[in-house]
Every structure is written in C-alpha cells, then in structure tokens.
Simulated scan of single mutants.
Amino acid sequence: MPDDTELTVGATAAVLGLTVRTLHHWDEIGIARPTSRSAAGYRLYTEADLERLRRIVVYRELGLGLDEVRAVLDDPATDVVSALRAQRAQLAERVERLTALGGELDTMITAHERGIVLSDEEQTAAFGPGWNPSWPAEARERWGDSAEWQQYAERSAGRAPGDWKAVADASAAAERALAEAMAAGVEPGSPEADELVERHRAAFSAYFPISRSKHVVLGRLYEGDPAFAAHYDGLRPGLAAWLRRSIDASARSHGIDPETAEWE
C-alpha cells in the first residue's frame, strides 16, 4: 500500500491474518503500537507499522516469545543470529519429542486394534507353542468395545516381549498350582483354595483389573464357555468346575453372593 495510507485495526488484522484482539493486546503491552489515531480515537496503522507487525508475526511463528521478539526488534545488544540459533535448537528438540510421541501413538493404536503389539513369532515365544496368535483378534471382536479392552490395550502398548513372557509365566504358574491343588484333594472354600484363587486373580489382573465380583463372572465363563472349559479341563479334568466353585466360595468369604455378582 502507499506509504501514506493508514489502515484501521480491523483492516490491518485482515491483511496480516491476525485478530483485532491480538493487535489490541500488542498495542497495550507496547510491542506494536499504531503510529496514529483517527479523529474519533481509533487506531490507524501505517506501512511502517505493518512492516513491524509482519516481522513480529514471522518471529512468533518461529516460536519466539513476545519478550524475545521485543528484544530482537528493539534491543541493539541482542544477537539476532544467536537468538535464532537457540530457537532452532529448541525446535529440533521439540521435533524429536513429537517424533517419539508419534511412535508411541502408533503403538497405542496398534494395541487397541490388535491387543498385543508383538509379531506372531514373538507371541509364540512369550506364550508358548500352544498359543494361537489369532486369539487377541478374536478377543477384540468379542470385547473390543469394553473398558477392560481399553485397559488391556493401554497396558499392552507398554510391554516388550520379555514383559509379556513374565505375565504369561505368572498366569501359567497360577493355573498349574490350581490343577495340583485339585489333584491333591484341596476343597473349594478352604484357606489353601482361597489363597490360590487370589493368586489366580492377581496373575490375570495383569491384563486388566479384576475385582472379586468380576472374578466370579469369569468363573462362570471358565466353566460355561467351551473354549475356556477345554483349556482348564485340559490341565486337569474337572478343573473348570472346581475353579468356579473355589472362586464362588472365596467370594462368599468376602461378602459377595456369587448368584448375584455382576461385572463391576
């Protein structure tokens, strides 16, 4: 625009892609005051004013704070190159952080979609040769909309193969202890059975938090679902029913009625 043209605050904001509120603020703090005012007292910006505003916009987009911008524009002692190099270093650090965050988000997305962020080979190494890598996908199909699946996925995202192997080993050890106790004649409701029920609940709470009430519901599933029943009865014939009775007995000792227990 011609050097003698003066723009209102609204027109200036439109030219620079700013808001009127921003220009008012910059005027109030003294970093970019308009050269003149209209007869009615309205702000008027000259071409020189716009040039300063353009420089402020550039430095702000580069990440400098308003005090730093003021120093660059007004303080003759400020080393502009050094200030920009410092900002460049900070930007590089931020890019690195954002790149790492992007990788973490990708992992979290994969965990929510697949359940376990491991290759088929890594899953087999962690869970043993009897593991089927398609099981997590089947679980997501069945429970993917639940809060428990979200908790499971969030935990899964942070687990390396070694972490999963530790979880699998603890779960398998708890199940073997149940089978051995049943074989030894341990009765549901006995102190030993109650201790094993708590060990089982703790081991499987590594996947998502399992309350005693939820454990009762899972006990019904262990006995009633053909796949779960086959798993436990494969460890010891009748173990699925024995485990459900043991979970129910333990729940009663903690004031929970197995007949009315819900997923909570």
Rank of each mutant, 00 (worst) to 15 (best):
R37N: 11
R97S: 12
W131H: 04
L18K: 11
W143C: 07
A202S: 15
D67P: 00
A173D: 11
G158M: 14
E68I: 09
E259G: 13
V81T: 15
A14Q: 15
E47A: 13
R37F: 10
A166R: 15
R70V: 00
L218R: 09
P136G: 08
S250G: 11
T5F: 09
R201S: 03
E6F: 02
L53K: 02
P34A: 10
A241V: 08
R244W: 03
G17D: 12
R60D: 02
W26L: 08
D106Q: 15
A229I: 08
P161W: 08
A147H: 13
L53P: 06
S213W: 04
A14T: 15
P191A: 06
A126Q: 04
L23P: 01
G185E: 03
R176W: 07
E198W: 13
E47F: 02
S246A: 13
P161R: 09
D225V: 10
Y42Q: 14
G238S: 12
A39Q: 13
R212Q: 13
P129G: 15
A39G: 13
L66P: 03
R33W: 07
A172F: 08
G102L: 03
G30D: 11
G144V: 00
A251P: 00
P191K: 12
A111V: 03
A83F: 09
R97Y: 04
E264W: 15
V69L: 12
A13N: 07
T12P: 02
L221Y: 15
R70Y: 14
E104G: 06
E141W: 03
V217E: 11
L16D: 04
T99S: 14
A13K: 11
S36Y: 03
E192W: 04
Q87I: 08
G234L: 00
P161I: 07
A241E: 11
Y232P: 02
V197Y: 05
R155T: 00
A240E: 02
P2C: 09
I116V: 08
D75G: 06
H215N: 10
A71S: 15
G17H: 12
L23W: 04
H231S: 01
I256R: 07
S146H: 10
I256G: 04
T124Y: 01
F204Q: 04
R88Y: 03
D27V: 02
Q87E: 07
T78E: 12
R55D: 02
I210D: 05
R33F: 01
A147N: 12
G115N: 02
R201H: 02
G102R: 15
E223S: 12
M1Q: 09
D74M: 12
S156Q: 00
S171C: 11
G189P: 05
S82L: 09
E259D: 15
A139Y: 09
L53F: 01
D106W: 05
V69N: 10
L73A: 05
V72N: 14
D257M: 10
A168Y: 08
V186R: 01
T22K: 06
